[in-house]
C-alpha cells in the first residue's frame, strides 16, 4: 500500500516526479498491452470519409451517381463505387482516476488499482493514437482533445501524475459535441458527481464506458476483529468491533452500489464493466477497445 502523505505542493511535485520516473515501465506495459489488442481486431478498417482508397463495391440502387467510379466501371459490365477509408477523427474523453483511493493494493492484488488504471488508460490512448483519434485526458493539462505523437506523449505523461484527492470524480468538461467518453475508476467517490458529469456528456450526445477497477480485498472484505477503517486520504473513517460480522452487509452494499452504477450507465446509454486487480489487464482493454469501436462505425 502506498504511503499516504499530507497534501502539499512540494509533495505533489515529488510524487509527480516519482511517477514520471516510473513512467517507462508503465509505458512499456501499456505498449505491450496495446499490441495484443492490435493483433486481434484491427481497429478501423472500414469504409468512410477519407482520402485513402479503401475498396470498390458494386453500385446499388440509391447510390449517388457522383459516387460511381467511372474509370473502374468501364472495365466491366457493372457499376462500381469507389470508397475511401473512413478517416474521420473521433474525440475520446478519457478519465483515469488518479486519486488516493486508487493507490490501494492489498496482498491479494497483482498491483495497485492506480497502476492498473494507468496502464489501461495509456494502452487505450496508444491504441486510439494509432487510429488517429483525438484524445482528451480529462482533469489533466492534456484535457483538450488533440492528436499526434506529441499530444499522445503529453497524455501519457499526464496519466502518470498523481491526484491528491481522497476519492476521484470526473471533472466536468466543455464538450463540443460528439465523441466517446471512457471513465476508469473504482467509483468509491461521491456518485452524485459522477452522475453530474455523465449527464453533461449525455447532453452533448456523448456516450461512453465505465470501467470499475477494484481490489480483490474490496470484494472479499477479509477483515476480522476490532478494526478502524480509514479511507486512503484519511477523510473518512469507520470503526467496528467485529469486522467479520460486517462482511455480508458490506458485500450487499457494494452490490447495491454497482447496481446503481449499472442503472446510471444504462439510462444514459453508457456501458459498465468491472475489473479486478488480481486479473490480467488484457480482457479489460479488449472490452474498452471493443466498446469504443462498436459504436464508432
Amino acid at each position: 500500500m502506498a504511503k499516504i502523505l499530507p497534501f502539499s505542493p512540494e509533495r505533489l511535485r515529488a510524487d509527480a516526479e516519482a511517477s514520471a520516473a516510473a513512467f517507462p515501465p508503465f509505458l512499456a506495459e501499456a505498449e505491450r498491452l496495446a499490441a495484443t489488442v492490435l493483433m486481434g481486431a484491427h481497429g478501423r478498417r472500414r469504409a468512410g470519409m477519407g482520402e485513402t482508397f479503401w475498396q470498390y463495391r458494386p453500385a446499388t440502387p440509391g447510390d449517388s451517381l457522383a459516387a460511381i467510379d467511372w474509370r473502374h466501371s468501364a472495365r466491366s459490365d457493372h457499376l462500381y463505387i469507389r470508397q475511401t477509408e473512413w478517416e474521420a477523427a473521433q474525440t475520446v474523453w478519457l478519465w483515469c482516476d488518479r486519486s488516493a483511493s486508487m493507490r490501494y493494493a492489498s496482498k491479494l492484488a497483482l498491483c495497485s488499482k492506480r497502476e492498473r488504471a494507468a496502464v489501461l488508460s495509456a494502452a487505450l490512448a496508444i491504441l486510439l493514437g494509432r487510429g488517429g483519434e483525438r484524445i482528451a485526458a480529462m482533469g489533466t493539462d492534456a484535457g483538450n482533445p488533440g492528436f499526434g505523437a506529441a499530444h499522445l506523449e503529453r497524455v501519457l505523461a499526464a496519466l502518470g501524475r498523481e491526484d491528491p484527492a481522497d476519492a476521484g470524480a470526473p471533472p466536468s468538461v466543455e464538450t463540443t459535441g460528439g465523441g466517446r467518453a471512457v471513465f476508469i475508476s473504482d467509483f468509491f467517490g461521491d456518485l452524485a458527481l459522477l452522475e453530474e458529469s455523465m449527464a453533461a456528456f449525455a447532453n452533448h450526445g456523448v456516450t461512453g464506458l465505465l470501467l470499475q477497477i477494484t481490489d480483490p480485498s474490496e470484494e472479499s472484505f477479509p477483515f476480522q476483529g476490532r478494526v478502524r477503517f480509514e479511507s486512503m486520504g484519511g477523510a473518512l473513517t469507520y470503526e467496528t468491533d467485529r469486522a467479520d460480522a460486517l462482511r455480508e452487509d458490506y458485500r450487499n452494499a457494494l452490490a447495491a452500489r454497482r447496481d446503481r452504477l449499472e442503472r446510471l450507465a444504462a439510462a444514459s446509454g453508457w456501458r459498465f464493466s468491472i475489473h479486478h486487480t488480481d486479473q490480467s489487464a488484457a480482457p479489460a482493454l479488449l472490452w474498452l477497445a471493443g466498446g469504443l469501436s462498436q459504436r464508432m462505425a
Binding site: 500500500m1 499516504i4 483511493s101 486508487m102 490501494y104 488499482k113 476519492a167 473504482d186 468509491f188 467517490g189 461521491d190 477494484t214 481490489d215 474490496e218 477483515f223 476483529g225 476490532r226 478494526v227 478502524r228 477503517f229 480509514e230 479511507s231 486512503m232 473518512l236 473513517t237 469507520y238 470503526e239 467496528t240 468491533d241 467485529r242 460480522a245 460486517l246 452487509d249 458490506y250 452494499a253 457494494l254 452500489r257
Partner: peptide
Amino acid sequence: ARTERFPAVRVLLGLEDRER
C-alpha cells in the same frame, strides 16, 4: 483498535455494526 486503510469506506458508511 487496529487501523486499516481501506478505500471502500464510503461503502461501509451506511452500515450498522451488528455486534457491538
